[in-house]
Amino acid sequence: MEDRTMSKLQLITKGLIKENPTFVLILGMCPTLATTTSAMNGMGMGFATLFVLVLSNMAISAAAPYIPDKVRIPSYIVIIAAFVTILQFIMQAYTPAMYETLGLFIPLIVVNCIVLGRAEAFANKNSVIDSACDGLGIGLGFTLALTVLGLIREIIGSGSAFGFKFISGDGILVFVLAPGAFLALGYLIVLFRKLTAKK
């Protein structure tokens, strides 16, 4: 009910800190851990999810009154899958290199819990515009989290930031590999909790 009284701006900003999907809600862990080997990849994945999130939120909020309650989850998944397919075409055409790098994780946006979670928790009972704002906010929060995580892993793991190398030689390679992803995210959540608890 609280959501109803929020302004559009609040809807967008709440996704960044208060309801950050990665650090607070802890959703969508698979792409978060897998694609953040560098800041650029993290940001690419974040924007790809943002795209699907905004459009699917709008479509679902528009279609929700006509979808019978019993089949709503499969219907939402089909709507989301349709937008993911559109995204795949767009990325293949305009950012083929990024599409190659993210690979499997682009089609896997379909089963990202954030997208389905927002559809179920917000879009199906709010207006189209509000849902778009909510999608934008959560999507930006996700992009921010992935970029920060990617940046940290890239700096420690390969001594560069957004592809610009500032340390000669190799970094601590393990941060680019699987264990570093878990470790960096774990400590980042702790840091986030510490910082937000003070306010």
């Binding site: 393990v174 699987a178 264990p179 570093g180 878990f182 470790l183 774990g186 959540i189 702790v190 608890a197």
Partner: peptide, 21 residues
């Protein structure tokens, strides 16, 4: 307190992943 729940689980997973490497 700050580590409770998911963060400590992630750090544990990190060590497990290290072992699997």
């Amino acid at each position: 307190k700050a580590f409770q729940g998911i963060p400590i689980a992630l750090i544990t997973a990190s060590i497990l992943a290290l072992a699997f490497m």
